[in-house]
């Protein structure tokens, strides 16, 4: 019984931290300058990238190195739906005259198409356990980037294109900030719910013991594919949201650096913990794009070959080796030992 209570407390604790975090974030605009709010908004979207990646890699235990595929697909879907003139004089000319649906719909469609892509990729790659999935997902983003080059009349090639200020998420930064914060909160709550549902528990059981799960009559393959769909749906929606946040789209959404940053955030925060990636995403994104850049890098002489990436990768290796369960588990253990 006491054991039960202990677990109860942890879960309520987790949620109350989350509520506290959201409350603090909700009132921050009173104190912070516009530009920091802008970065925070990007951070919230990034946290959803991280949490949705963790859903597949941490929870299900399949290393997905192609999560950016879904971010990018979501982004391009909403961008193209909003700028159908991109199809003009291409083989998809017929799409030119489709009137753009409202932005929330196109963002949602971005998620749906991303989920379909994820399910298709999952159907092909998840048949075999372990390493194949990691290797195949590692090379797939390249194919998508290549596609944006080959079909550059539509996708805008390396440069991408702008959806226009009128398609921005909100007319001002505070509005964007609030929308992304709400979006992050909703995504986390839904993913939290799924994680604690029967489905989530089954997925964890599969990760912990494949053979046992199979013996219990669980169709591992289909569960994994389903999880892939959920993970890529959130990646797609958040990718689409990002497009309307920054008003432009380009293949960087598919690219390796973004993938690495996601890995960095989740591993440092703690794989498979849900709260860990939130902490990690928050720390890493701000560290990389604000703290290191403004307070550290300018003071390092250029003769020393060190930059923010190097600092972060060293941090990643140290954390992976010394505390493979991430900062969150370490903090939790520390807290419980007290």
């Amino acid at each position: 019984m006491s054991k039960l209570r202990k677990y109860w407390n942890i879960d309520i604790g987790q949620l109350s931290y989350l509520i506290g975090f959201l409350l603090v974030m909700g009132v921050l605009p009173i104190f912070l300058p516009d530009t920091l709010l802008y970065i925070l908004g990007l951070t919230f979207i990034f946290i959803v990238f991280a949490v949705s990646w963790d859903f597949m890699t941490g929870l299900v235990g399949e290393v997905n190195l192609g999560h950016t595929i879904f971010i990018g697909v979501g982004g391009y879907v909403t961008a193209l739906l909003n700028v159908p003139t991109r199809f003009k004089n291409t083989f998809l000319d017929i799409l030119t005259n489709i009137p753009p649906p409202p932005i929330p719909i196109t963002i949602l469609l971005g998620g749906v198409i991303a989920a379909i892509t994820g399910i298709l990729i999952g159907l092909i790659t998840l048949r075999l356990r372990g390493w194949y999935f990691a290797l195949v997902t590692a090379i797939l983003p390249l194919l998508f980037i290549k596609a944006t080059y080959v079909l550059k009349d539509i996708f805008g090639g390396e440069e991408g294109f702008s959806v226009g200020l009128s398609k921005a998420l909100a007319p001002d930064t505070i509005g964007k900030y609030i929308i992304t914060l709400l979006f992050m909160a909703a995504s986390i709550l839904i993913l939290y719910g799924i994680k604690n549902s029967k489905l989530g528990l089954t997925l964890i059981a599969i990760r912990e013991d494949n053979t046992l799960a199979e013996a219990l009559g669980i169709n591992i393959y289909l569960y994994k594919v389903f999880a892939m769909g959920i993970s890529s749906f959130f990646a797609g929606v958040s990718g689409a949201l990002l497009v309307h946040y920054r008003v432009t789209i380009s293949p960087d959404l598919f690219d390796v650096p973004l993938m690495l940053l996601i890995i960095l955030a989740v591993v440092i925060g703690g794989l498979g913990t849900l709260i860990g990636p939130i902490i990690g995403g928050f720390l890493i994104y701000l560290l990389k794009y604000w703290v290191l850049k403004v307070y550290l890098i300018p003071y390092i002489p250029t003769t020393i070959p060190i930059n923010d990436d190097i600092i972060l990768y060293i941090l990643l290796i140290i954390i992976a080796v010394l505390m493979p369960h991430g900062i969150y588990e370490r903090l939790k253990r520390f807290y419980m030992a007290m």
Binding site: I12, I19, L23, G26, P29, Y177, L182, L189
Partner: peptide, 24 residues
């Protein structure tokens, strides 16, 4: 809990937005 979190959040966010727009 989710509902509680939602309410708390909306209050917080609303306060923030209000304050933010006041600040402009």
């Amino acid at each position: 809990l989710a509902a509680a979190a939602g309410v708390a959040f909306v209050v917080g966010a609303g306060a923030g937005y209000y304050a933010g727009s006041q600040k402009k």
